[in-house]
């Protein structure tokens, strides 16, 4: 009975891709726009609320026995909870007048980017846009991490724009999953390996 229940769980990828896409957009917005205290509070709240949704959906993928559940959990932490908490603490520190520039988040982002590059290698057989999406999130995390550690705004911007591209590609993947669930389909394109073989 337990086994049949596990098989029946629907794929939450449509919702989770939407949430990850929004995380990407939030990271892009925060790293390319000047912020006010009002923005910090609003974005911080939004981030944490969306992260709870992403966490639940990631756990569902874990319960479904899908290896990508782990990747979803990693992305929930790196793109959702960490930046969300960081933004809320930054808001509190700004209101209280306490200096707050934790470079430790940079280290976590860089570590996360290494894992993302590992996942990208695994995804070389998937449609190219999915490989590109994983590459973009890896590069985004790497640039954001380095920008944080070195206090380099240019690197932060590069990271932000990588996240923007990741968001667009993730939205497309989410829509593809939703179309599949409702009996339709969207063009997926060749995988990176197929492209190399052709050329």
């Amino acid at each position: 009975m337990t086994k049949s229940a596990r098989i029946q769980i629907a794929s939450p990828d449509g919702a989770i891709s939407f949430l990850f896409g929004v995380f990407g957009l939030l990271l892009w917005y925060m790293s390319t726009h000047p912020y006010t205290t009002g923005l910090l509070l609003s974005v911080g709240m939004t981030w944490i609320v969306l992260s709870t949704g992403a966490l639940a959906a990631s756990l569902l993928n874990v319960f479904r026995g899908k290896p990508k559940g782990n990747i979803n959990l990693l992305a929930t932490l790196l793109l959702g909870f960490f930046p969300g908490l960081n933004t809320l603490v930054l808001f509190s520190a700004t209101i209280a007048g306490i200096p707050y520039e934790p470079r430790i988040f940079g280290v976590i982002y860089i570590l996360g980017s290494i894992f993302c590059f590992g996942v990208m290698v695994k995804r070389l057989t998937k449609p190219f846009y999915r490989t590109l999406s994983t590459l973009m999130v890896g590069l985004g995390l790497l640039f954001l991490g380095l920008g944080d550690l070195l206090s380099a705004p240019v690197l932060m911007r590069l990271g932000g724009w990588s996240m923007f591209l990741f968001a667009l590609l993730t939205f497309y993947y989410g829509l593809s999953v939703m179309y599949l669930l409702y009996g339709g389909s969207l063009p997926q394109g060749p995988s990176w390996k197929e492209m190399v073989k052709k050329s």
């Binding site: 029946q8 769980i9 629907a10 939450p12 990828d13 449509g14 919702a15 569902l60 939703m178 669930l181």
Partner: peptide, 11 residues
């Protein structure tokens, strides 16, 4: 809804 296996759970 997702645990029941319904795609509408995503929406």
């Amino acid at each position: 809804n997702l645990l029941k296996g319904r795609a509408a759970g995503n929406l």
